[in-house]
Design a binder for these strands. Structure first.
Lengths: 252, 252
DNA sequence: GAGTGGTCTAGACCACCCT
DNA sequence: GGGTGGTCTAGACCACTCC
């Protein structure tokens, strides 16, 4: 077994190992869904300590390239149906179906808590405790969103009961509470603890996030929330035809 | 010096250390811009090895909470001017100024290369090598975007010369090449090697990314590109008034 | 039982910064 | 010189899986 000298381009050993493995994935030597050699084998091949290999693999895990299962091995992550062509807003059954997937959901919890997430302060949330509905949304069986929605007070129990099986918006609508307008902030962020568990992803995993503020025709009823999706599962696409561009550039 | 027993909630030691430090930042005990105690001191306080502390700190770095400077110490990251209220499209001087900041830019390179980034395949990019313009865009002096723009062939040198000081769109316009339409895909991703260097951020740092395809009135001239921003520097906000919502839900 | 990945530690370097 | 963080290694555990 010939030991391979790593071409460390002015960088550290674990970086060299990481990039070499990344190359092998890109080149197809290590294929999606298949196991890569064990840390011991790789350590021997590159002539570095297995611990250094582990360090490299851990970095590739938090970058979404690998997954490792204790006791079994480390596997190249399947770039499992990267959903594209997603429109700005999907939080209704109708919308989801139109985009070509069958949504299901799992209710995690309904609690009463204050909004603490500092990023939600964009929407000037109230200080009082809110009804918080957390759920996981699946597309054709694979989880794609982790949603935490905060509702202002005085939501009838009849509506709350429906949150387990319907999108919040759909549940409100069924009770004649129509939407007024929506503000969305799109950003990226490391996965929250809840999302880490829901998607079984490591600490610091990059997530695409949408913060939303929904106003309804009832002044008292307002929804503030956060939806997180693993970066390799979801993207938003937007089209701007020439007319729209012109309007944006010469605002009235 | 009383040793503090960590409350490890069913998790590992380094996770306990990480969360304790995170708490201290949130509570204001460790303040933005200030140094936290050294790994040795923290190790003593928590009664764990300094290596375990280092591991915890490294995770907090890749999550954007800390920065460490070799030889000096580890510092709580200033949540430096998180730019909000950004509209969908800012790649022109005029737009940027309207949004309230003075943009400057630094040209990194102008090369001729093929588009290899697999995520750009959304736009069905051509196989031939393209003119690639890489630059960093600053807002009031702090870097906020790392841009890689690929232009189709046959762009006159007179225009190319302007890329160092102008946005690509602005440069094209000055030469009467107007835009037709724009497609944007917004997603998140770990930082690319170029962006890592530009923002001096660690491997795997979450970035907000915009992939764009710009068609112009000249069929031969087309721009495909990627803009990356560190997640703690930029977010996109979108407003949907009631009229727009109705239109989206009952598409023609 | 042999193999896997995950964690924790001790110890040894290095490069850097400050005084 | 004494502090800092960063890297690499050896070695020891543990929990898990598969045969």
């Amino acid at each position: 077994m010939a030991r391979k000298a790593l071409p460390l381009n002015g960088s550290s050993l674990h970086e060299g190992v990481r990039e070499e493995i990344r190359k092998r994935i890109a080149s197809g030597l290590y294929k999606p869904g298949q196991a890569i050699p064990s840390t011991a084998q790789l350590g021997e091949e590159f002539d570095v300590s297995p611990i250094t290999v582990k360090r490299a693999l851990r970095d590739l895990q938090s970058a979404g390239a690998l997954t490792s299962v204790p006791g079994k091995g480390t596997f190249v992550k399947e770039q499992h149906r990267f959903l594209r062509e997603l429109d700005v807003w999907v939080s209704s059954m109708e919308n989801a179906r139109r985009l070509g997937f069958e949504p299901t959901m799992e209710l995690i919890s309904i609690t009463k808590e204050k909004i603490t997430d500092p990023t939600l302060s964009v929407f000037n949330p109230p200080d009082e405790a809110q009804l918080c509905v957390r759920k996981i949304i699946y597309a054709d069986g694979t989880p794609i969103m982790y949603d935490a929605a905060y509702l202002s007070t005085d939501v009838p129990d009849a509506i709350v009961d429906e949150f387990g099986e319907r999108f919040v918006i759909d549940a409100l609508r069924r009770h004649k509470i129509e939407l007024m307008d929506i503000r969305i902030v799109i950003d990226a962020a490391p996965a929250s603890p809840g999302a880490q568990q829901a998607f079984s992803i490591p600490n610091g995993y990059p997530m695409l996030r949408r913060l939303y503020l929904i106003k309804t025709i009832r002044p008292g009823i307002r929804v503030i929330g956060v939806v997180e999706s693993p970066f390799d599962r979801l993207a938003c696409s937007i089209n701007l035809p020439a007319k729209t561009i012109a309007r944006m550039e010469r605002p009235s």
